[in-house]
Design a protein around this nucleic acid. Structure first.
Lengths: 222, 222
DNA sequence: CACACATTACTAACTTGTCAGTAAGGCCGA
DNA sequence: TCGGCCTTACTGACAAGTTAGTAATGTGTG
């Protein structure tokens, strides 16, 4: 191979490493992500194979790897994709605060009955994530952390600060806990009334928390 | 080697299919079961291998298969073993009823902080079990069913039947839900106060349930 | 001895990931 | 607009490692 470079003007266009995907690529990737979400959801991350994902979009597993590099990267992008999708149909951009948040949680539980696949995916992945070095572990952990913070803030908000923040966090953990725990029970046995039980529990925890912060008498500043 | 069999008394004991295990076999099996519980607990059923289990007791994976036949059978026996172990140190034989049950649940949550492995095993397996055709699915489902029944009965008991059974079941599901859901959060983030949050939630749900059944006025039979 | 228990050796099925090669898209210069 | 030409998108074959389960063979105990 001849190596001689044209003397003067080497590299007139300073193209560092621009990747220019083709026209339908973005949609293709989204297709794969949906398929992967489906597979990881029904079979778990460890048990769901790349071939399984690939077949759903009519390509080979090597094709999937072409787009995502590794299986782990695919999982990460699935999670990010889910995050975006989740917030998409939400009014503003963030999850609401105050009283509105709890209405949102109850509404979500109600909606989840018609989104079995999503719920299953979430449950399987959450359960799997507590194993050693699971690639979704950080994501799940952070998700819980953020959610606890938001719910605790909402409690602070509607209680006007009468509830000690520590108690608010305690209640927030419990609320997330019931929601997740009930989902698993419901997935295994549809006779479990997911929305009713969730609603009931959230109200119970919430009212107990607020009562606790109600203070026997006046306790404004001190 | 010479093949000639002693002429007369061949097989004086007519045992067609009797298995007579050796001396230490029972303990050996128990050892394997504990190892398997450990492996399935930390890595999940799908991800935990027979070799992994075998190495913990100093044999090969084929040795494990000699005792249990298949990996699935091993899992089933692990679950049965756990069931027996769980009830072993309990006073009578069954989980208590009435007020005592809730005290027991809270006590369990408190103990679980020092049994991380057990909790992880339970969480991973429960999450995995919602996947299609999972070998532990029936076991987990039944376990939930029984537990819901026992808790609902306890509520019926301490409320003196004032709470509609339907509501009791609703509350029972929720109580199991918080316990399981909080465990997962705690496994991922130790700052989550497992016993406190669990205790608080159980009390909240319980009191809300009883208040609901308190009846505005007299409502004895109708 | 006979058999429970265990090993070694092996198979068949899968796994993720790599690689070379092919077909076609899209930009650029003439 | 035509013809190069590099890149993207993908396949098919294969590598290297798992896995569960089987079969043949030892060995020590009852």
């Amino acid at each position: 191979m001849d190596d001689d470079v044209p003397p003067g003007d080497a590299s007139p266009t300073p193209r560092p490493k621009a990747r220019r995907p083709r026209k339908g690529t973005a949609e293709r990737r989204a297709e794969i992500l949906r398929a992967a979400a489906n597979t990881f959801g029904s079979k778990g991350y460890k048990n769901g194979s790349l071939t399984d994902v690939a077949e759903q979009v009519g390509i080979t597993h090597a094709g999937v790897l072409h787009h995502f590099g590794t299986k782990e990267q695919l999982l990460i992008e699935v999670l990010e994709y889910r995050d975006k999708e989740d917030v998409r149909d939400l009014e503003g951009q963030h999850i609401p605060g105050g009283q509105e948040l709890f209405a949102h949680l109850v509404r979500t539980a109600r909606m989840n009955v018609d989104r079995r696949g999503i719920v299953q995916g979430y449950s399987v992945l959450t359960g799997e994530s507590v194993t050693e070095n699971h690639p979704a572990r950080a994501w799940v952990t952070e998700r819980f952390e953020v959610l606890r913070g938001e719910i605790a803030d909402a409690i602070d908000d509607i209680s006007g600060g009468r509830v000690p923040h520590q108690d608010a966090v305690l209640a927030a953990s419990a609320i997330i806990g019931v929601m997740d725990g009930l989902q698993v029970q419901w997935l295994l046995d549809e006779t479990v009334d997911l929305p009713e039980s969730t609603t009931f529990a959230i109200e119970a925890i919430l009212s107990a928390t607020l009562v606790k912060g109600h203070a026997p008498r006046t306790e404004t500043t001190q």
